[in-house]
Amino acid sequence: MHESKMDTLIRISIILVCIIAVSIAFFIQGKNQQRKESIPLVSVIHESNQIDDPPLLAVYQSKNSKHYLILYEVIRTDNNLFKATNTIELSEKPKMFRKDKKSKGVWVHFDDRWTYYNENLENEKRDNKFIDEKITSVPFQYDTSEKKGNLFLMDQSIQFSLSEDDELIDIYTLSKDKKLLLVHFENDIKIIVRK
């Protein structure tokens, strides 16, 4: 069977359209996957009981293809300064963090296992029953068009502005009185102080 020039042109056009569509799909999928991988892992390990009791949080950071677990104290008496208390290099990227039910340690979930690190970031054997599955996030609304956040806490609404690059992930309490909050963005963490 002989193919006309028009049939050949249509067939080649269809093939090119399919190749372009598949290329675009791979590009978009790769971009979304890169964004997900850049999201920092954060977990509040200890909520502050009073102004001289610093909150403690565990933060994952990746630099130069190396994986780090960092414990930060938030010094409430010094303008809520983030102070790194301990840092260790991890052998692989963790999937999630959880606080411990009884200590100021952190549970790190890797592909197929949970590993416990005490408050000095020393690896210790510990029963998985101490993993605290509760996440103390605060209800909020996020208006992406206006880049504004609305936080609802104790019958109070707190409004805050976001920069163009900020992508809000979650909000956590850092103090028992809920006056100090941790705002978790896609590439950063910040503090909100309630009056």
Rank of each mutant, 00 (worst) to 15 (best):
D132K: 05
K129D: 00
P94G: 15
S157N: 10
D100W: 05
N123F: 12
I75R: 13
D52H: 07
L153N: 06
H67G: 14
F82V: 00
N123W: 10
E119W: 10
L71N: 02
I75V: 12
E164S: 10
Y68Q: 08
S163L: 05
S163G: 07
D112R: 04
P94R: 13
Q141I: 08
L56P: 14
I135M: 07
I158D: 00
L90K: 04
D166C: 06
K134V: 03
M96H: 11
R113Y: 12
I158T: 00
V74R: 09
L162W: 10
E92H: 13
P55H: 11
N86Q: 03
K101T: 07
L151Y: 03
K104E: 02
N118P: 10
L69A: 08
M96N: 12
K129W: 03
K134D: 01
E119R: 12
I88M: 02
E119V: 13
D52W: 11
I88G: 05
I45W: 01
D100Q: 06
S91Q: 14
D166L: 07
D53E: 09
K66C: 15
K83I: 03
E167Y: 00
L151H: 05
D111M: 02
E164V: 09
V106S: 09
E167R: 03
F82T: 00
I135V: 11
S48A: 01
Q141A: 14
G105C: 06
L153P: 04
D78W: 12
T87G: 00
K101V: 05
N79G: 14
K129I: 12
E119Q: 13
R113W: 09
V138H: 05
P54I: 13
S161T: 08
Q61C: 13
F82S: 04
T136D: 08
I88V: 03
F97W: 08
E73K: 04
G149V: 02
E146P: 10
E47F: 03
M154E: 07
L57C: 15
N150E: 14
P94L: 15
E119C: 13
S145Y: 05
K83M: 08
H46C: 09
N118K: 13
F130D: 06
K83L: 10
Y117C: 04
D53G: 06
K134Q: 07
N150V: 12
F160S: 05
N80C: 15
K104Q: 00
L121S: 01
Y117D: 03
D53M: 06
N64R: 14
D78V: 11
N120A: 14
E73S: 04
Y60I: 11
I135S: 09
K101A: 06
F82D: 04
N80Y: 15
I135L: 07
Y68G: 10
K148A: 04
K101C: 02
S62E: 14
N128T: 10
D52S: 09
M96F: 10
N86A: 03
D100H: 04
V74Q: 11
V106L: 04
Y68M: 08
S48N: 03
S91M: 14
E133G: 11
S65K: 14
I131C: 00
S157H: 08
Y68W: 09
T77S: 13
F140N: 00
K147D: 07
D165N: 11
K102E: 12
F160C: 02
H109F: 12
T144C: 14
V59Y: 15
K83H: 11
E122T: 13
D155W: 02
I45A: 05
I88R: 11
N86M: 03
